[in-house]
Amino acid sequence: MRTNGDLNNTSAAREVARIDIDAAHSYRSLAISEAEDDATIRKSYRPFLLSPEITSTDWISKLELSTVVKLAEEDLHKTGERLKVLVLYGSLRERSYSRLLAFEASRILFRLGCDVRVFDPTGLPMKDDVQHNQPKVQELRDLGRLERRPCLGLCRATWESHCRLQKPNRLDPPLRRLRRPTQGRTLAIAQVSGGSQSFNAVNSLRLLGRWMRMFVIPNQSSVPMAYTQFTDERLADPVEGGSRMIPSGNRMRIVDCMEEFVKYTILMRPHFALFGDRCSEREERVEKERKATEKARKEAEEKRVE
């Protein structure tokens, strides 16, 4: 008997059936092999990849991910297309913890069979109204543009200092102009902090994702005291390599986020067109068609009179 009653109203929670572990899929990797990967893309947009020796023995290879691996494998066989994910980070520091976190997230997604591409923001100008054709701006737009690359997911890692979002002007404006192309896609967010755990940056990213009409997954990752959460890059472990996340609840949270991100993306992808279908836009389209028809009719009458 509870002394203070059911304070959290747990009795109202829905019963959830436990999903059994499928041993055949527990530690399987759906990663794109070097032989089947595009060499240019692999060199330019997959800086997170490690040597085959490390990839086969590191902590990510030992994660039990049977449920999402099975789901991803079935989706790959059904559609013949891998989930395409663009990963962003904002820091340009030589040892950037948001970049290291983004790389770890990318490795998890890559094992789950995603076509992961990481954008390097080096050289991306600050926001203005004249540099639309700047190479880095165009590169980011091309990576995120729907018609050129059907990117279905976006993972964004950033860092926070003194309770504010860092470098929002560098990465966000080019994507903000892609508001329409990004609608209906999924978004995962994460942040690193230099001090105690905070959620200001991820909350800001959540608002930005909503503004871009994206579906932000419920889970999120916030890594406090990030400088203590990664191994030294100079002391590379033969099993794990250097600059890897140390075992902790923070590491498991980023795993949970990426697992959830893939699940949501797979479940929502078949309904992409449905989520973008709105009454206001349908009426606007009908009105445009009516005006076009009326204009064509008048032009035809004028020609007939002449």
Rank of each mutant, 00 (worst) to 15 (best):
P121H: 14
S44P: 05
E301T: 02
S26R: 07
T40F: 09
G184A: 06
S44G: 08
L30T: 05
N9V: 09
S280A: 11
M245G: 07
T55C: 11
P125W: 09
L267Q: 14
L101S: 08
F230S: 11
T182L: 13
L165C: 13
C163L: 15
G209M: 13
Y27R: 09
E299K: 11
C155P: 05
G80A: 04
T231P: 10
K291N: 07
R251K: 08
V192Y: 04
K70D: 07
P247R: 04
E73R: 08
R185P: 02
N219A: 12
C279V: 13
R213E: 15
K263R: 15
R99E: 13
L88Y: 01
R304E: 13
R42S: 12
G113W: 03
A31D: 00
P247T: 03
C279T: 10
S98T: 12
L124T: 12
C151H: 03
A35M: 07
V69M: 12
R95M: 09
V69W: 04
V192P: 01
F103G: 04
V286G: 02
P135I: 00
S198Y: 01
E34M: 04
S222T: 10
L92F: 03
T265D: 05
G241Q: 08
F110W: 11
D75A: 14
N169L: 10
Y45E: 06
I19T: 15
A188E: 02
G113C: 02
D256Y: 07
H25T: 07
I108A: 03
L154V: 15
R95V: 12
P218Q: 10
L88G: 00
N200P: 01
E259G: 07
M225L: 14
S33V: 01
S96P: 03
R42T: 12
T158S: 14
C151F: 02
H77W: 02
D22Y: 04
E287S: 11
L109N: 00
L165N: 12
R156L: 15
A24I: 03
V305T: 11
P125C: 10
T67V: 08
N203W: 06
S204K: 11
A13M: 15
P173C: 01
R297G: 05
R176T: 06
P174R: 03
N8P: 03
R251N: 00
P150L: 03
D75P: 00
G242K: 01
R304S: 15
S29I: 01
F261M: 03
R99H: 07
R244C: 07
K298E: 15
F119G: 03
G113R: 04
D37M: 01
A190R: 10
Y227E: 14
T3M: 12
S204Y: 12
D256H: 09
W59T: 05
R206S: 12
R185Q: 00
R93M: 02
P218D: 13
H162E: 14
M245I: 04
N200E: 14
S29P: 01
R285E: 14
E284N: 10
D256F: 09
V239S: 01
E147K: 02
E301C: 13
L109R: 00
P173R: 00
D237M: 06
M245C: 09
V223C: 08
D172E: 10
T10F: 15
V137M: 00
H162G: 11
F215I: 13
E306M: 10
N250D: 09
L76R: 04
